[in-house]
């Protein structure tokens, strides 16, 4: 589904991604872990189409297409979804209007009829249960005055409504208490499916106690320096990131 080859990207003069290689197949869940500043968020935003990065080398193939050539809205309509680490507040636009615009933009793109108010309401009512969101929230301005937990749940709710093929979750587990984490993790788990791939970007491994990944990758200084299974996350939790970094530096030196 997704093939990232030797991806290099920079912001201004600073190189953030320095050769990412990652293959994600339908049905898989990949956890990308790493210390602050390792390039996790850059990778997530770049895949979703944020234009503040300059790709200097490499390519990203999504469902056989050159993802980097597509504007963000087209990526979304083709099934790429990014759950933001910091969802943006938009006063003056209700959550339900925003979602309806999003759903119908995608439906239109696929030649489907737009949902009317009633069908739309039925759809979102069902999806709200998944993350235990209060219906009153639909009529509130998007993310404005939402608690941290509500914002994150709203992201997963949107994912449930939009049913993406490839979901990238950027630190969706940060800043949550254990109850909120459980709700979100259950939501994510419920959205697992054979046709859907997920990239969970996270700093901590505790989300992975609830959502078991197929692969765990460690990102450090813009490169994936180690890949493994579920056990790698636990090892990271126990030992921190320093040993990985030391190992990677050693490997780098050996190559040189």
């Amino acid at each position: 589904m997704l093939n990232i080859k030797n991806l290099h990207a920079k912001v201004g003069d600073k190189e953030i991604l320095r050769g990412i290689n990652l293959v994600v197949k339908a049905g898989e869940i990949h956890a990308v872990m790493g210390p602050n500043g390792s390039g996790k968020t850059t990778l997530a935003h770049l895949l979703a189409g944020r234009d503040s990065y300059e790709v200097t080398a490499g390519e990203v193939i999504y469902e056989g297409k050159d993802l980097l050539q597509m504007p963000p809205e087209e990526r979304a309509r083709e099934g790429v979804f990014l759950a933001f680490q910091y969802p943006v507040e938009i006063p003056g636009v209700s959550t339900s209007y925003f979602l309806k615009a999003a759903v119908n933009a995608t439906r239109k793109h696929h030649g489907l009829e737009e949902l009317d108010a009633i069908d739309f309401l039925n759809l979102i009512k069902e999806k709200m249960k998944l993350v235990e969101l209060d219906q009153g929230l639909l009529n509130r301005p998007l993310n404005e005055g939402f608690s941290g937990g509500e914002k994150k749940r709203n992201e997963i709710f949107q994912m449930a409504v939009l049913e993406p093929k490839l979901a990238i979750l950027d630190e969706t587990d940060s800043g949550l208490d254990i109850d909120a984490l459980r709700i979100i993790a259950n939501g994510i788990d419920a959205l697992r499916g054979p046709d859907r791939a997920m990239i969970l970007i996270t700093h901590y491994q505790r989300l992975l106690n609830y959502v078991t990944p197929d692969f765990v990758h460690v990102l450090s200084e813009g490169r994936i320096v180690k890949s493994g299974g579920r056990a790698l996350a636990l090892e990271l939790e126990a030992k921190g990131y320093d040993w990985i970094k030391a190992e990677a530096d050693l490997a780098q030196q050996t190559i040189v």
Binding site: E73, A76, P87
Partner: peptide
């Protein structure tokens, strides 16, 4: 327009022109 907000809307499938007009309306709606 706030580029973060524009990107957020686009990342959900809303095209650039629609995102701009929505944010302009939101600006006035207060």
């Amino acid at each position: 327009h706030d580029q973060e907000a524009i990107f957020y809307l686009r990342s959900r499938g809303v095209d650039l022109a629609a995102a701009r007009s929505l944010l302009t309306y939101a600006f006035a709606s207060e």
